[in-house]
Amino acid sequence: MNTIILRTASNYLLPLLLLFSVFILLRGHYLPGGGFVGGLVAAIAFVLHAFANGLDNTRTLLRIHPGYFMPLGLALSFLSGLAPILRTGRPFMSGLWFDGPLPAIGLIGSPLFFDIGVYFVVIGASLTIIFTITENA
C-alpha cells in the first residue's frame, strides 16, 4: 500500500487519532466512550500507520513491543481495584474518589485508572495480534 497520500496523511493522523483516543477514553464516564473504544481507536491509529509506512517503521516508532502494554494495563486495573482495600479497607473494586474535582481535569477516582488500564490492555492485545498475524502472513 505504497501511496504517497496515505503515507503523508498517516503521519499527521497518528498523533491526531491518539489524541482522539485519549479524549474518548476520558469522556467515557459521562458520555459515550471509554477505555475499550479508546484503546481500539489508538490501535487503529498504529495499524493505519503500519499500513502506510510498513510494519517495521511503526515498530521503530513504538520502540517497545506492543505486548508490554498488556501487563502494564492489567497491573494498573488490578491496582486500581486494590487501592480501596489499602486506603480504606473497603472491598476489592469499590470506587475511590477524590473529594472535589480537580481544575481542568475534573473528578478523578479509581474507576478512571481502571479504564486507563483497559485502554492499555486493548491497545496491547490488538496490536500484538495484528502485528503477529501480519508478520506471518
Binding site: G28, H29, Y30, G34, G35, M93, P111, F114, D115, V118
Partner: peptide
C-alpha cells in the same frame, strides 16, 4: 454514562 459505569464500576 451508564454503560461505562457498568463496565468499570
Amino acid at each position: 454514562n451508564i454503560v461505562n459505569v457498568i463496565l468499570v464500576d
